[in-house]
Simulated scan of single mutants.
Amino acid sequence: MRSRLLSLTILLIVLFVLSITAGVSLGAASIHFDTVWSIVINKLHPNTFATTWSKGQESIVWDVRFPRVILAALVGAGLAVTGAVLQSLTRNPLADPHLLGVSSGAAFGAILALLHTGLILGLLTVPLFSFAGALLATAAVALVTHLTRSHSADRLVLSGVAVAFVFSALGNLLIFLGDPRATNTVVFWMLGSLGLAQWQHLIYPAGVLAGCLALLLPKSRELNALAMGDETAATLGITVARFRFLLFVTTALLTGVMVAFSGAIGFVGLMVPHFVRMVAGADNVRVLPLSAAIGALTLIWADVVARLIMAPEDMPIGIVTGLVGGLAFILILVKSD
């Protein structure tokens, strides 16, 4: 067992290095792999290599693409972990932050900050407003489910879809009422965009992801118990209502912060946990960390495709994840019949 874990860890590290290298190297202006890592190492340890590249190449690698790839990994990991937790929490394989309306709520909060309030709290304004919107959407789903007295998995998804439509409409209203000069940028961001990634901003999604993983991973077995039913969890000494509230707030925080920096990217939270469970089983001790890793790799490569398919223009990454995720989901449905 320990040797298999070590082999898997080594494989994931190799895949991460290759994916980051490809993500930084490939684009409208391709840069050789050797040059990429020479620039990176020189930035970390100056004068290690003789400078054989131009200032433009150095700026593309260090200032543009490298933070973009890191942001893609953070967002992919965050959304995939959120999907895995929500699917176990709701005992619904269709649950993810996009379908349950959490992403729409987060986008609503971010649009409110970007177009109407301004950065009243500095760089934390958009993440905080996005988190508040995600939390509001989560509460709305819980309220609709409670008012309709229907707690089945199907009804929960329907409640989430309804809430998503409401918050999407409210977000569109904010865009309609906003400054026309800024709306094009916001609309592009809503479709999923990593193009504004900057080193000084990465501390926020990185810190939130690290904190949420530190909270969630030790509770993987409790999440397993909750996935088997409230009665089972209660017999094992879990305070179900408090634990469920903690998980909802944590997933809202993860979704809100990731949406604040990347826009609303769909299907990562739905498809990645499905794939992980097909390969590694349903135990969240394995599902959560593997979902984080596969989610990060998935979004790195989705971003590469988005940059290459219409080069030199960037296609919104949400279009790529929507197309690939939708087709993959259809295949899963066909095979499950």
Rank of each mutant, 00 (worst) to 15 (best):
F108R: 09
A282Q: 09
F165P: 00
R244L: 02
A107R: 11
D63K: 07
A241G: 07
N224Y: 05
R244C: 03
A280R: 11
D63Q: 12
L86G: 11
T255D: 03
S30Q: 15
Q198S: 06
V144T: 10
T82M: 10
H32K: 14
H116Y: 13
T52V: 11
N47I: 07
A234E: 10
F165I: 00
G27P: 15
V257N: 01
A293S: 05
L158W: 00
K43S: 12
I70M: 11
K219L: 08
R286P: 01
T251N: 01
A293F: 04
A241Y: 09
D283K: 03
V240I: 09
T255H: 00
F329A: 02
V161N: 01
P97Q: 09
W199N: 03
R149T: 08
L74V: 05
L156T: 06
R307S: 07
L223D: 01
F188Q: 09
I120V: 15
R65H: 03
V36Y: 08
L174Q: 03
G178E: 02
L308C: 11
M1N: 01
L94H: 13
A22G: 14
H98C: 03
L6W: 11
I13H: 05
Y204R: 09
D179N: 11
V61G: 01
V305R: 10
L323A: 13
L8M: 11
A22C: 15
P180E: 06
L99I: 15
I265Y: 02
A225K: 02
N47H: 14
P273G: 04
M258E: 00
R221M: 07
A282F: 07
P46G: 12
I111Q: 06
A282G: 07
L121I: 13
N224S: 04
F243R: 12
V81T: 14
L323I: 14
L124I: 15
I319S: 04
S152L: 02
R65T: 00
V81C: 09
P218Q: 10
E58N: 05
G171D: 00
S103F: 07
L99N: 11
L8D: 02
I20R: 12
F176Q: 01
K43V: 07
L196N: 14
L226I: 08
R277L: 01
R155W: 08
T145H: 07
L44N: 05
W199P: 06
L209V: 04
L94D: 03
G237I: 08
V257C: 00
